[in-house]
Design a protein around this nucleic acid. Structure first.
Lengths: 204, 204
DNA sequence: GCCGCAGTCTATCGCGGAATAGAATCGTGC
DNA sequence: GCACGATTCTATTCCGCGATAGACTGCGGC
């Protein structure tokens, strides 16, 4: 098949997956029907099976797409230059920034990956742990250099940071004024400086 | 019906709802079958319908139980004595403390309330907003008194705090060493003092 | 302008799961 | 020990949804 068709075909596939992501995000994997997905696309339910062998395979695709980019971006930040605080800020920005194009994918990844078949679920579990490790590493580095407090628990703190970010998927796009930039900026300030007054100068 | 029977009956009902909570938490509302719930209890699937009229009604019960206590506890903290930082610490503790007896209920409330019928869903939505407001109020009070930074966005910060807490339901009970006390303490320190070194004294 | 295949359709199957009806049993108070 | 309500059981219905089979269609390339 010529490259022109092939490109259109690829694009159509992406549309199908995006429709699945949208529907899964709205109703949950089990709550969504393949009919719902077909409705979004304006095609018949059975036509979907030209694109995937099963509903579960569609979920796999959505989850893979929904997790893509996180580890790569975070690794780049970790290896890049800057203080630990700057790196943490960039980690958070990178994370939130990825919602811009694919919130639905992220939502499905977060809430529905538990419905994946064992193999994929474990694979994605390893991926997540790798991602968490990067946050932990940056935290540990900051603690070692004296930049961060020494009494942090790097593991719990990493989970707290990631969890706080992810929780925003629940209201991102709904809560007025909560743009990607503001969320990232507010979260970073909260995490780095805390809530108490008199901290503005410290991280400036 | 004598009080003895009545008490046993009430207790049995609670067992049924707890089983539903457990199963809903594990597999999700749509992913769970009434058979699964019956299996946990060692009874037949149809016997469940003595206790609720529908699967959806069971979800309602679990969600109501799962949200009970949050607003009341938070209101008590808000109205009680102490600095804003102390109050925020107590808000977080109160929140996390409620998992001790009913994590499954909290998990179902967080992840499955979207499957509730409209009326209940809206009711629970109002309840949540009321809860968030209390956090906002404490934050605003702290900002007004100069205790907290003036450049916080109280709404986003409140959502961030609550979201961070709730995200821990994903790994509470799994992550080794993450007890209710440690989670609450670590989260509070992170939120109040931030991550940077040199903050230990400030909140002491 | 015809061929071929990507893409969509119609039609249908089969299962799993929610829910109902009504019988059986258990246990508690008298 | 009997009666009666509370609880659980057996048996069955009904339908929604995932999936398969096979026909149709229209566009891109020659």
């Amino acid at each position: 098949m010529p490259p022109a068709s092939r490109r259109r075909s690829k694009r159509r596939s992406a549309e199908i997956v995006a429709a699945a992501a949208k529907v899964f995000a709205e109703r949950g994997y089990h709550g969504a029907t393949t009919q719902d997905i077909a409705d979004v696309l304006g095609i018949r339910q059975a036509s979907l099976y030209y694109y995937f062998p099963s509903k579960e395979a569609a979920l796999e695709q959505v989850c893979m797409d929904g997790s893509a980019g996180y580890v790569a971006g975070a690794l780049a930040v970790k290896r890049g230059p800057g203080s630990a605080a700057e790196k943490l800020a960039r980690l958070v920005s990178n994370h939130v920034e990825l919602w811009r194009t694919r919130v639905d994918f992220a939502r499905v990844f977060l809430r529905e990956r538990s419905n994946l078949p064992k193999a994929t679920r474990h694979r994605i579990g390893r991926y997540s742990r790798r991602y968490e490790r990067i946050f932990e590493d940056v935290l540990k580095a900051g603690m070692a250099s004296g930049e961060f407090r020494a009494d942090l628990d790097p593991r719990i703190t990493a989970l707290a940071v990631i969890g706080m970010c992810n929780s925003a998927t629940a209201w991102y796009g709904i809560e007025p004024g909560a743009t990607v930039e503001r969320i990232a900026a507010d979260f970073v300030r909260l995490l780095v400086d805390g809530i108490l007054a008199g901290a503005e100068r410290r991280s400036a």
